[in-house]
Simulated scan of single mutants.
Amino acid sequence: MKLHQNPRPTTYLVTGFGDGYLQIGERQLTRTVVLGPGLLREDWGAGSIDQLDAADFAQLTTLDAQILLLGTGPTQQFPPPSLLRPLIDAGIGVEVMDTLAAARTYNILVAEGRAVAAALILPEPVPSA
């Protein structure tokens, strides 16, 4: 499904999604990604919220953002509060939602000119038998 065109080509936006992928501009990504002001970081963390650790979240404190949207896969899952502590200590607000909701919200906040980043978890593909 196509979401919309990016009016500012230097800003990364989620332009579409499908079964097991997000489209960022013209690229289809099938792994977890972090988007932020001038940033596209592929393969951040792991393929599920349960596999993330404190070091994964500590990396996010360096983002130039006031808000971090955490997309946790197909369903909303809250990480342990101890993992969010580095972000809270850095003054970064965290909103947790499913990945597609986080992607849509990220695009809206970027369009509003907000200092926002998104860590979007895409579940690792299940190998076919």
Rank of each mutant, 00 (worst) to 15 (best):
L60Y: 05
Q76P: 00
V14R: 06
E95Q: 15
A65P: 06
E26C: 02
D89W: 01
L52W: 08
Q59P: 01
V94W: 10
G73C: 00
I67G: 08
F17E: 12
L35Q: 01
A90S: 15
V116G: 06
V33N: 01
R114S: 04
E95K: 13
Q66M: 05
S82N: 09
T30D: 09
I108A: 13
P37F: 08
A117N: 04
V14M: 07
L70M: 07
L60D: 01
D43W: 03
F57W: 01
M97S: 03
P74Q: 14
A46L: 09
A111R: 14
T32E: 04
S128M: 12
V34E: 01
A54L: 11
I49S: 02
G91V: 02
D53W: 02
A55D: 13
S128N: 11
V34S: 08
R85P: 03
A117K: 09
V116N: 07
Y12S: 11
P9Q: 08
T61Y: 07
R114G: 04
A65Q: 01
F17I: 07
Q51V: 05
A54C: 00
R8G: 00
E42R: 09
R114F: 05
L40P: 05
T32R: 06
L109N: 13
Q59V: 11
Y106Q: 03
A54G: 00
G91Q: 04
L84E: 06
D53E: 10
T72E: 07
R104I: 06
L13K: 10
P74H: 15
P127V: 04
L83F: 12
A58N: 05
K2H: 12
Q76C: 12
T75V: 15
G36I: 02
D98H: 10
N107E: 12
T75K: 15
I121Q: 01
P80T: 09
V14G: 07
A101L: 02
A118G: 09
G91I: 01
A54I: 08
E42S: 01
D89P: 01
V94D: 08
P37N: 15
I121C: 03
T62Q: 12
G36Q: 05
D53Y: 04
P123M: 03
R8V: 14
V110K: 13
K2N: 12
I88A: 15
G93V: 09
L83D: 12
L68W: 06
L22F: 06
Y106S: 04
E26N: 11
V34T: 02
Y106V: 05
T15Y: 01
F17W: 14
Q76G: 00
